[in-house]
Design a protein around this nucleic acid. Structure first.
Lengths: 197, 197
DNA sequence: ACCTGAACACCGTTCAAGT
DNA sequence: ACCTGAACACCGTTCAAGT
């Protein structure tokens, strides 16, 4: 009678957890609702109760990705006041995540942008708000445009380094060094002097 | 008797050309061998004569992508001697391509890196060699390590900006301005003074 | 509210057969 | 050498039915 001992309401999270693992080793292409159902020990129609279609699952995955990355960045911020170290820690947290969960990053920042569900959009906004807080000046009179430009370039560079590593153009150690060098270069630029404290 | 007037040997390129279009409007997910065969007016088994499996088609697409991007960069280099303008033109050429063919870029720089076929690898090397030539110093005694680092950071930043635009985080005009600003910032850094002429 | 299981259309892949 | 068409296993999606 304990034929299906699990999922007295936890099937949704069980599917998501399993999906993260599959994603990590087989990419988006390896993700199938039927396969996830099989792994969870339920019928192939069961996931339908929690995700209307495959895209809904992918959206939910992107949302958890944004939340996990946000908490990683928050962790990197804990107890750091020096600007240089703050940037370095955030940068490494971001790039590490992007490399370890490259396929998930593709779901979070899809190349063919589909209209984003509101819950995913909210999770994305939380991440950007956290990043803003991490990089923003604490002085109110700082040039707003310069700061936003600086933030964008910083995010772009980190995302780019992660892509280089994830696609095997450079190895991880090289990527780590690039993160350091990029951070130093950007903090040393004239843009930075008007953008951050 | 002209039931199938095309493809007296051109089916391969016909499939590839069609695939680029499908890729552009439906992403990798919308690419199906059977659908391509249908559009070309051949049976579903016909593509097999030119591509052993779906991955072989994706590899071929990546290869053509590298070749097209290489020629775009070469075009951007034509008749430009000033360093600043050279960088700006190459950067815009790169980012424009990455935005217009974002899905193709994902095939060229896959998140879950599969072992790359030798022909794809060769096409990729051609692109990197061209980029090296575009950005490299003409003086032989320049610091080699600094130059390579500078090249990597430049490529990473451009790829990152393209990702931001392709995933709709910023619009295209903002991306264009970021390209300009990033180029100025990088050329103004101390890294650049030891890396480029 | 959540899950089952049959049904349908679609896909990648294989393969014998045609030209 | 290139293409056809049947076959097989797999998938997403829908839906009536169970609990």
């Amino acid at each position: 009678m304990t034929e299906r001992p699990f999922h007295h309401g936890s099937l949704r999270t069980a599917l998501l957890d399993e999906a993260v693992l599959v994603l990590r080793e087989s990419g988006v292409h390896g993700l199938s609702l039927r396969d996830l159902a099989r792994r969870a020990g339920v019928s192939h129609g069961a996931p339908r109760s929690h995700f209307v279609d495959r895209q809904a699952l992918l959206d939910a995955l992107a949302e958890t990705g944004f939340r996990r990355l946000t908490s990683r960045v928050e962790l990197a911020l804990a107890g750091q006041d020096d600007v240089r170290h703050r940037f370095l820690r955030v940068a490494h947290a971001y790039v590490d995540f992007a490399i370890d969960d490259a396929a998930l990053m593709d779901l979070m920042f899809p190349a063919s942008p589909s209209p984003r569900s509101s819950t995913v959009a909210a999770a994305a906004r939380d991440l950007f708000a956290t990043l803003d807080g991490a990089m923003g000046s604490r002085r109110a009179d700082t040039d707003e445009v310069a700061r936003e430009t600086f933030e964008m370039l910083f995010a772009a560079t980190m995302q780019g380094i992660a892509t280089l590593v994830a696609s095997n153009r450079i190895d991880r150690a090289r990527g780590d060094r690039l993160v350091d060098e990029a951070t130093e270069m950007m903090l040393g630029s004239t843009l930075a002097t008007t953008a951050v404290t």
